[in-house]
Simulated assay, not measured.
Amino acid sequence: MRKKMAMALFVLLAVFLVACGNKEKTNTNTNTNPDTNTDTNTMTEPNQNHNDVNNLTEGPNLPTGLKAATNPKYPVGTKVVLKAKHKPGMEGAEATVVAAYDTTAYAVTYKPASGQPEVKNHKWVIHEELKDVNKKPYAVGEEVVIETDHLEGMKGATAKIEEAKPTTVYMVDYKSTTGEEVKNHRWVTEDEISAK
């Protein structure tokens, strides 16, 4: 009797484990560094050339001096709809707010340090992701050095500020309209998302 019960329990446990295993998403990202974001999609913004450039957003490695938003319109955990067109499949995608920060967001034009073609009007790099950060936000037309690696070749690149916007920026997880799961996408601004 005990053997039959033990066998039945074993079979039940095996079936349960197999069923749970089939529900997990297979990670095709070959990057084994846990400190990097899983957002490895090619970034293509309107009027930009991001040929074969991977988004290397660094997930948990937030820049120093970044302050959590005190009263964000969309608190952490809020379900939202993306209006941004930073990447294919982003506009209209449902997302979850992972983090919210009060800062200045910049649209920048830069020549990647890796020698790739110039990237025009990249949205967004935030104030804390720039080298030798001033206390005051930079103005349109000023040159800065980027200290983050959202995209390959971005870190160390000299950039020109095209737009400066004091705002709340959001990190989001979303499923693109093309079916791709994206984690820790940086950054969308308050006017690029809406309530679900």
Rank of each mutant, 00 (worst) to 15 (best):
K3A: 14
K3I: 15
K3F: 15
M7S: 09
A8S: 07
V11H: 03
L13P: 00
A14W: 12
A14I: 08
L17P: 01
V18A: 05
C20L: 09
N22T: 14
K23Y: 08
K25P: 11
N27Q: 14
T28E: 15
T28N: 15
T32Q: 12
N37D: 14
N37C: 15
T38P: 03
T40E: 04
M43A: 10
M43F: 10
T44R: 00
E45W: 13
N47T: 00
Q48H: 03
H50F: 10
H50W: 06
H50C: 09
D52K: 03
N55R: 06
N55D: 13
L56Y: 07
L56M: 12
E58A: 04
P60A: 12
L62D: 11
P63E: 04
L66P: 03
T70W: 05
N71Q: 11
Y74F: 15
P75C: 13
P75R: 12
G77H: 13
T78W: 11
K79T: 15
V80S: 14
K85H: 08
H86F: 11
H86R: 02
G89S: 01
G92F: 15
A93N: 05
A93P: 09
A93L: 06
E94V: 15
A95T: 10
T96H: 14
V97T: 10
A99F: 09
D102G: 04
A105W: 10
A107K: 08
Y110D: 07
P112N: 06
P112C: 09
G115N: 14
Q116L: 13
Q116S: 13
E118R: 04
V119I: 13
N121I: 01
N121S: 04
H122Y: 14
V125C: 11
I126A: 01
I126Y: 04
H127V: 09
E129K: 00
D132N: 11
N134K: 13
P137L: 01
A139Q: 13
A139T: 12
V140F: 08
V140Y: 08
V140N: 02
G141S: 06
G141T: 06
E142W: 03
E142D: 12
V145T: 15
I146T: 04
E147L: 02
T148A: 13
L151D: 08
M154K: 02
M154E: 14
T158Y: 06
A159W: 03
K160Y: 05
I161T: 05
E162S: 01
E162M: 05
P166F: 10
T168E: 11
Y170H: 05
M171I: 14
Y174W: 01
Y174K: 00
T178S: 08
G179R: 03
G179S: 07
E180W: 12
E181S: 13
V182E: 07
V182T: 07
K183N: 02
K183M: 02
K183T: 01
N184W: 15
N184R: 09
N184L: 11
D191Q: 01
E192W: 10
E192R: 05
I193C: 01
A195G: 02
